[in-house]
Amino acid sequence: MNKYTVVKKVAQAITITVTVVILLYVFFRLMPGNPAELIIAAVANKGKLSPAKLQDLLKVLGLQYGKWSFSGFIIYLRDMFMFRFGTSYNYRNDEAVIDVIRQALPYTLLLFGLAAVLSFIIGLPSGILTMFARGKKKEGAILGTSIILNSIPFFVLAIFLYVYIIGDFGVFPPSATAMNPKDLYDPTLYHLERLFYYMALPLITLTAIEAMGHLITMRAAMVSVMGEDYITTAKATGLSSRKIMFHNAARNAMIPVSTRMALEFAVLAGGAVIVEIIFGWPGMGHILFNATENEDYPLAEAGLYILALMTIIAYSLTDFIHAWLDPRLR
C-alpha cells in the first residue's frame, strides 16, 4: 500500500468526521425554540439565577452567543475535537460528560467489537460452506433461515430472547445494570465468567442477525466469483474444489463483503444501542437513551459524536483491509 493511499484514506476519515460534527451542530439546533431558554426557565423556576450563573450555564450549553452564531460554532468545533463536552446537566449530579462517556464507552466497544468480530468469524466461513451445498435442498434451508434471521429487527429479536430466555427460564440476568466495573477490567476467571454471563444475550442478538447478513453476502459473492474465468481455469488445472473455494474464490469474494462490512458498522452500532437499552447493558446506548429522556443535550450530543467516531474509525479500518484485499485499489 503506498503512502498516497494512506494519506488519502486518513484525509477522507477526517473530512467525514468534520462533516459529522457540523451535522450534529445543525441537528441539535433543529429543535424548535432555543433549548437554553427552555432549560434556563426550568432551572430558574427552582431558585434564583444570578446573571453570572446564567452566563456560566449558557457557556456550558455552548449557547452564549445565540443559537446560530459563527463564533459559537467555532468554539463548538474546537471543543468537539478536543473532547471538551462540558458537564452533563442532568446526569449523576452534573458529572463531566467526558467522564460519563469514559465509563460507558468500554462496555459498548467490547460489545460492538466482539459482535463485529464474532459475526465475521461465523458469517464468512458459513457463507463459504454454504457453497458446498449449492443446488441442494440444504442450501435453500440455510439461506431461508439466514434471510429470516437477518430481516428480524434487532429489538424484536432482543424482545423474544428477553421474554423467552430470561422470562421463561431465568438463565440469564434480566438486567446487566448490576454489573461491577471490575467485571470489565479485571481479567480473572471469576470476573470473565460474570462478564459473559451478563453479555451473552446482547451479544447473541447482535451476532445472530449480523452473521446471517455476512453469510448471505459472502454466499452471493462466492456465487458470482465462481462464475469467473480464472476459476474455470483453476478447475481446468485439476485443483480440488475445496482448494479452489478457499484459496482462489474466497479471497476475491471477500472484497464485496468487506465493503458491506464497512457499511454495516453503522447498522451494527445502532443495533448495539437498542440491545443495550433492552438488556440494561451499561454502555453508550443506555447513556444516550437516558440523556434524551432527561433532555440532557450536551451528553446526547457527545454520545452521538463518540459513536459516530467509532463507526468512522471502523469504516476507515475496513477501507484499509479492502485496499489490502483488492490489489487494484492499492
Partner: peptide, 11 residues
C-alpha cells in the same frame, strides 16, 4: 450514513 442510524433516530 456513518452516524449510527438508531442513536441518530433516537436523538
Amino acid at each position: 450514513y456513518l452516524i449510527p442510524g438508531l442513536p441518530l433516530l433516537i436523538v
